[in-house]
Amino acid sequence: MVAPNQDEIARGIKEFILREFLPGENPDELTATTPLVTAGILDSVGTLKLVMYIEEKWGARLSAHETDVEYMNTIGNIAKLISNKLK
């Protein structure tokens, strides 16, 4: 099975975030660099839901320290983290 590339992961994460946390919002306004944690879109519970989704969807196991804002604050960062794990 071919590992998904970073863009595909980013798309999947964006869809999940729009569906779960931002229903009704304009998808164009959620970009790869939109702050998620610092802007209050992802709180600790939201982060855990996202982690569970990532594990289910791509089978990537995240460690507790990878829930840090440094990794989770933008879709771009999250996608990069997952992509590196799946390599």
């Binding site: 946390f21 931002l22 229903p23 306004e29 879109i41 519970v45």
Partner: peptide, 15 residues
């Protein structure tokens, strides 16, 4: 409160 928010107040805003 966390569970209640997750169940009933899902909506966040980009702006």
């Amino acid at each position: 409160n966390m569970l209640w928010q997750e169940k009933f107040v899902k909506r966040r805003r980009l702006k």
